[in-house]
Amino acid sequence: MAVASKLIENNFRMNRLPHIWCPGCGHGIIMRGIAEAIENLGYDKEKVCIISGIGCSSRAPGYMDFNTLHTTHGRALAFATGVKLANPDLKVIVVSGDGDATAIGGNHLIHAARRNIDITTIIFNNNIYGMTGGQYSPTTPHGDLGTTAPYGNVDNVFDICRLAEGAGATYVARGTVYHAKQLEKNIENALKNKGFSVVEGISICPTYYGRKNRKGNAPEMMMNLKDTTLDKKVAAKLPQEKVEGKLIIGEFVNKSQPEFCEEYHKIVDKFTKED
């Protein structure tokens, strides 16, 4: 008897499930979205490679039935760059967290974007270091609490999408686990882009971030995502005061530019494809 949908059975290592994430953690929703996007695009599983660093999000590849690599903290994109350049036929996806991608791995994020290497990066942003028990991250809002910000966080947040855009990513989008279908579409479009793509998936962490900051239970945190976000297209039609303070979701960049591996291969071809 089936225990899960066809989507799950087709794309996951069934004997590895259920996953380790806490009750109400939004990460499973993003992971499902990645699987759905891959399936919609009809990729050959043997050619899909999913690479992660360290943290809650980084456990995703272990559950997914592809070529999967769970690397060191912050370095997933650097490993992925090696894999992709060595074999450009592989469809390389990096899953990362807010701390993994923008703190310890921030340098790799901006440089992968600058190169426009064909890697799709999905950042599971739960605004906290969950695996280590709730320390503040580069996306923990100013003033919020973490176990290492017991009197309120004095840091400012990174806007991951603007960071990625500024660094040269050719596809950039933000979605949330509440808006799961749109997020899935963002991931699909990111995969279709031949170049460096970043999708910031706003997740929820009821166990650490939520509890510490009195954000309520999982359904309440989901509701909060609905209430505090605005779609880019909707926001464009609203007066400024109605947009103020809202987190904008949607596609920010989707453009075509020369891709790193293709550019490099032009050099290789010069030497190896002589008649």
Partner: peptide
């Protein structure tokens, strides 16, 4: 990291 990635590929 990339060296390891290249070898894995």
């Amino acid at each position: 990291a990339a060296t390891i990635g290249g070898s894995l590929a």
